[in-house]
Nucleic acid binder design. Structure first.
Ligand SMILES: [Mn+2]
Ligand SMILES: [Mn+2]
Ligand SMILES: [Zn+2]
Ligand SMILES: [Zn+2]
Lengths: 125, 125
DNA sequence: TTTACTATTGCAAATCATTCGCAATTGTGA
DNA sequence: TCACAATTGCGAATGATTTGCAATAGTAAA
């Protein structure tokens, strides 16, 4: 927590309520959270600000993003990992990243985002 | 082409103009196309119908989907592959899929979707 | 071929996620 | 404490995707 807040400050960003609160939620959750999920947990912060904070975190490489059902899901970048999401109920778990980057012809600065989907055993009757 | 059309018919789906035209475009393109991309190439078909056709193709497992800039990109499922997309200009290339599925704890019917992003050498000055 | 029936389409309106403009507020360093 | 720029909240705009419904077009049987 302090780590990342220091990091923000050193780069010239202010330490604001929205930034601290969103960060707090990401720290206490290892699941993939949508903007709406995050916003529900802090109605003191406007949804537009949640978007702005997450966009900043993305620029700074603090979060990784996955897509599911036409919305972005956010999770702090700790050890490289992805998520497996139940397509019936939305339940998600972390999955360590095993992807090894090749040398891509003519592309620089390559990143990847992966989402696994399936049916959790709860939803499997 | 005939292959897939037969397949549709055998499952009880009608062989309609929108379905044939969208399929035609997907067959002639190995890049990842958005609904808007596809729609531009066939203004004789309403955009809502393009969405419906692609949703059907998705259900039937005919296409794989990636996300980029808040929109879905579609490509026919031929050999398993993904795309690497230039985040500056949108140019994309195919990349063979090398991902090996593990055994996921409690999940069945696991699928994955991956998108690579980077900067193409054209955009690299 | 023609008919009859239903799936599918086009169109316009509705949804839903995400972004934006702008005036009011807040964090920071002096 | 002050001054000023960065950031927020709010409401409106945007853009992708979905939906309701009446009109249309495949299909299979007559
Ligand atoms: Mn996680
Ligand atoms: Mn392709
Ligand atoms: Zn489930
Ligand atoms: Zn490029």
């Amino acid at each position: 927590m302090k780590d990342i807040l220091e990091q923000l400050k050193n780069k010239g960003y202010k330490l604001t309520q929205p930034r601290e609160k969103v960060l707090g939620i990401l720290l206490h959750n290892h699941t993939a959270l949508s903007v709406q999920d995050i916003h529900k947990k802090i109605d003191s912060v406007d949804k537009a600000s949640v978007y702005r904070v997450l966009n900043l975190f993305e620029e700074l490489g603090l979060v990784n993003i996955e897509n599911f059902n036409n919305e972005k899901l956010y999770c702090l970048t700790r050890d490289p990992h992805h998520h497996i999401i139940c397509k019936k109920c939305g339940y998600s778990e972390e999955v360590p990243c095993t992807y090894e980057h090749h040398d891509f012809n003519n592309f620089d600065n390559v990143q990847h985002q992966m989402t696994l989907t399936g049916v959790c055993n709860n939803c499997n009757k």
